[in-house]
Design a protein around this nucleic acid. Structure first.
Length: 242
DNA sequence: ATAAATGTTAAGAA
DNA sequence: CTTCTTAACATTTA
């Protein structure tokens, strides 16, 4: 799950804030007794981290590749890691990493690197980008300390939109292209959010998991790139190394 | 139906 | 002391 999806999760959880949790349970290693009988005070995300603040404790959820949450619609034959029972409503979290956090832990987060946060600081991101001249842009975009919340879908779509090759190094980009990279990442995050909310995310993929480039109709290259070796989908003809 | 994929972290190796 | 490699986890989609 990428950052914008968690912003949507926070919105979906709003109706549950301050309501009494009748029972909390699940397979995660958590102090459920500190949650049962209390309520959710607020939620927020930092990149791909989903932060839940309860009255007496606080937890961080990471959905990784396959995690999900459901409201009043449990999965069959699957034990939730965390279940919040509100009486008439129930929230379920599946296959995610959940960890109890110390009070005040959110102060350790730098929200200015979160693409979806109000605090997002493009200038700071640009400086961080320029501080890694030898990094390939595919790796750079996935760097959660610079573009927190950006995942592999956003990486591939952002680079295609820029017509930028995933293997270009920062030092081979003009200052204007470096600036464009930062802007495109933030812009794509907003589009991702909008499309995901409208249930039209995949419909708007241009290069991700495509076989044909929508621009030149040539073949799409699918290969691991950079140190991270995450799969990049790109057009060798349209996406330039500068 | 087999494999790849919206991701991270811990442990051990170099 | 870094930096790299591998494995582990877990589920849907093509």
């Amino acid at each position: 799950m990428e950052g914008p999806s968690l912003v949507i999760a926070s919105e979906e959880f709003k109706p549950f804030l301050k309501r009494k949790i009748v029972a909390a349970s699940g397979t995660a290693k958590l102090p459920f007794e500190k949650i049962t009988g209390t309520s959710l005070v607020k939620t927020r995300s930092w990149g791909k981290h989903f932060l839940l603040f309860f009255t007496k404790t606080q937890v961080r959820i990471h959905f990784l590749m396959f995690g999900s949450y459901r409201i009043n619609n449990p999965r069959e034959n699957r034990e939730p890691k965390l279940e919040l029972d509100y009486g008439n409503d129930t929230i379920y979290f599946y296959s995610c990493a959940i960890k109890e956090m110390p009070k005040g832990f959110e102060k350790e987060y730098d929200f200015s690197v979160d693409l979806m946060a109000e605090e997002w600081d493009a200038k700071k991101a640009l400086q961080a980008v320029r501080g890694k001249p030898n990094a390939e842009v595919a790796d750079l975009l996935m760097d959660q300390t610079i573009f927190s919340g950006l995942g592999n879908i956003m990486k591939n779509e952002t680079l295609f939109r820029l017509l930028m090759h995933p293997k270009v190094r920062v030092k081979d980009l003009t200052p204007a292209r470096q600036r464009a990279l930062v802007k495109a990442a933030a812009d794509y995050a907003q589009d991702f959010y909008k499309w995901k909310k409208a249930g039209a995310l995949k419909r708007n993929w241009k290069i991700m998991r495509k076989r044909i480039c929508p621009r030149c109709e040539g073949p799409v290259t699918k290969a691991p790139t950079g140190k991270l070796q995450r799969i990049s989908h790109y057009c060798e003809r349209c996406q330039v190394k500068a």
